[in-house]
Design a protein around this nucleic acid. Structure first.
Length: 590
RNA sequence: GGCCCCGUAGUUCAAUGGAUAGAACAAGAGUUUCCUAAACUUUAGAUGCAAGUUCGAUUCUUGCCGGGGCUACCA
């Protein structure tokens, strides 16, 4: 039984015996720093069943608890807040009860499985800052769910077909002179992306020329020879024309090699891949079944729709009049296919930008209407756009922040700062590179993950990311400093804690540590890496305050020293776990 | 027009309906004979506007004002 449960039981008894009333629930919160106490009982809600002055009620409950609960040593009441002071023994026994802080808060993986989709790139251009936010969110949510006991499959759907892919293929064919990644030394995705930009440039020239000749803008855009040729290429691809398919395979292959390098640099991986070229015909059968059961209906022109007006949404088309699929058709089919492929999953998370909020609302509703029991466990992990000071990122115009460039820049910043500090001069070049990468990436990941996903991020590459204050490197630094203490402390055997009297700072640290398992659970329920990030920062602040105010290695006696070293080790272990679920590494030295 | 999201210090972010709205950066003032100063301590500074619900509202409701998005037989 947790302390909260114990307290709840006793408070209910107190209310029953003192006032003859019965309480449903008791509300707790952490005591604010300005007041004495560790845990606070909010009296106000009790006024519904107990008539009286909140302060008096608080006083009488407090008196009762001190008498009946050994962990409560004293109390004070401010307005309607009953602040309880807990005994040292309570905190120390919590500390003793955790045998291994490196797995503290982690729930062992159970059978309940989820699939998390993220990344979802197009194969006509490299990954950019927007993808980074997507990938970091998706990956850390996958890890958080896993830490909370779920089995998790990480997947992505790759948009590897369509007119936009044909555009870069066509441009390469016309202007490429057989350029290859091997020959040019360019990363495959970069090379292909260049031709996508090239297509747009040439296309714009053609459009301008046509307008010169007297066409309207709309006509010019529709009739430009390059576009017509790209459309023809798409038809050839769909018809299975060997030459086109061959070109498509080759260029996509280059892109995948490039993507893999980027994923490796970011430090993420996937368990499965879905390709749109395989899934774009899926879903039609499911539509036909839904037509029979009355979930969908057919209009006179032959198109098939789903009427969602009763649910406050519009009518949605799910099959064109010519019988071909739309985006929605595919997503319905893909979702169903995934459950077939991986029958143990009972829910999916889609990491996709918030411009598709409506699409997923509709998708989930349709799947529910189709009667799938897992449709209740679908979640759109929706996130805001990443904007630049110059405005929106547009890949066709080349105004994007490239993922690889950004990571390299972050490492370079880490290098500059580290070299100035000169703390790792004894590292060899390879070790240094590794460390700069860890720090630079840590800065980037933390910067993005600490923000509520719903909010837009304004990212200024020029100012780059800070390394001071509430940042990844600050937390990594604290970890490295603790590791240094532990190296100096040597092997520490556990001494009994009975003689230890808790310092205020030690109390605060223990309280913060205690919150970790709950934080993981809440983060998993809310799909929120930001909660973990902010928790970790609070823990680190607490540790730094402890570190500055208390001597660890030079403590007055052996048992104090022993306790402080073990406490530091516990903090380090929790930082490592917390950052682990965010997908951020921590260095032993920096 | 309809629907959705966001508006908190100069800036970037916090705050299960709870106490005097927390941090960080930038600005000012301090702290290193001592375990890594990428640190710590400290001063000043904010809920877009107006109503409502409540013992209590940054949080919930409504209206307005600002920013963004969706509203394709595109994906």
């Amino acid at each position: 039984m947790t302390l909260q449960e114990t307290l709840t039981t006793h408070i209910k008894q107190a209310i029953a015996s003192l006032y003859g009333a019965s309480l449903e629930t008791v509300e707790f919160q952490a005591t604010r720093k300005d007041f004495e106490g560790d845990i606070t009982v909010v009296v106000f809600p009790m006024l519904r069943v107990v008539k009286g002055n909140p302060v008096q009620i608080g006083e009488s409950i407090g008196t009762y608890l001190v008498e009946h609960v050994t962990e409560v040593t004293r109390f004070n009441v401010v307005k309607g807040f009953l602040n309880l002071v807990l005994s040292d023994a309570y905190f120390l026994s919590f500390f003793e009860s955790v045998t291994d802080f490196s797995s503290f808060g982690i729930v062992p993986e159970g059978k309940d499985a989820m699939m998390v989709e993220f990344a979802s790139p197009n194969t006509n251009k490299p990954l950019h800052l927007g993808h980074i936010r997507n990938v970091l969110l998706g990956y850390s949510v996958a890890r958080i769910l896993n830490a909370a006991g779920k089995k998790v499959y990480k997947t992505q759907i790759i948009n590897d077909r369509g007119i936009h892919i044909c555009k870069s293929m066509l441009a390469w064919k016309l202007y490429g002179n057989g350029e290859t990644p091997q020959g040019s030394g360019l990363k495959g995705d970069k090379l292909v992306g260049n031709y996508y930009v090239k297509f747009d440039q040439e296309y714009k020239k053609e459009v301008a020329a046509l307008i010169q000749d007297g066409k309207t803008e709309a006509e010019a855009k529709a009739e430009a020879p390059l576009l017509l040729e790209a459309q023809k290429m798409l038809q050839q691809w769909e018809a299975g024309d060997p030459e086109t398919v061959e070109l498509w395979k080759m260029m996509n292959g280059w892109v995948y090699e490039g993507f893999e390098k980027t994923y490796e640099a970011i430090g993420v991986d996937f368990d499965s891949y879905y390709y749109e070229s395989n899934t774009y015909l899926l879903g039609k059968d499911n539509i036909m079944e839904g037509l029979e059961t009355g979930v969908f209906y057919r209009k006179d022109d032959g198109s098939v729709w789903c009427d969602l007006t009763e649910d406050g949404l519009d009518e949605k088309i799910v099959l064109r009049s010519d019988g071909t699929a739309v985006y929605m058709t595919q997503d319905i089919g893909t979702a169903i296919q995934r459950v077939k492929d991986q029958p143990d999953i009972n829910g999916m998370i889609y990491t996709v930008g918030n411009e598709q909020d409506y699409h997923f609302k509709v998708l989930f509703l349709i799947l529910k209407k189709l009667g799938f029991n897992w449709a209740d466990n679908l979640h759109h992990l929706s996130y805001g756009m990443v904007d630049l000071p110059s405005g929106k990122m547009k890949s066709r115009e080349g105004t994007v922040v490239d993922a690889d460039d950004l990571i390299a820049e972050m490492s370079a910043t880490a290098r500059t700062i580290s070299e100035e500090l000169g703390k790792i001069d004894d590292f060899n070049e390879q070790e240094k590179e590794q460390l700069y990468h860890t720090i630079g990436l840590g800065a980037l990941k933390y910067y993005i993950l600490k923000v509520d996903p719903k909010k837009r991020i304004l990212f200024d590459p020029a100012e780059s990311v800070d390394f001071q204050g509430n940042t990844g490197p600050f937390i990594q630094y604290t970890y490295a400093r603790i590791m240094s203490i532990l190296r100096k402390a040597g092997n520490v055997e556990k001494l009994p804690l009975e003689s230890v009297a808790l310092h205020t700072k030690e109390r605060e640290l223990l309280k913060q540590l205690q919150l970790f398992p709950e934080t993981i659970q809440t983060a998993a329920e809310n799909y929120s890496p930001a909660l973990i990030a902010n928790y970790t920062y609070d823990l680190v602040k607490e540790f730094n305050s402890f570190y500055q105010n208390v001597t660890i290695l030079g403590a007055e006696n052996d048992s104090e020293k022993n306790f402080r070293v073990r406490l530091s080790a516990a903090v380090a272990a929790v930082i490592k776990t917390a950052f682990g679920v965010l997908g951020i590494q921590v260095p032993d030295r920096m």
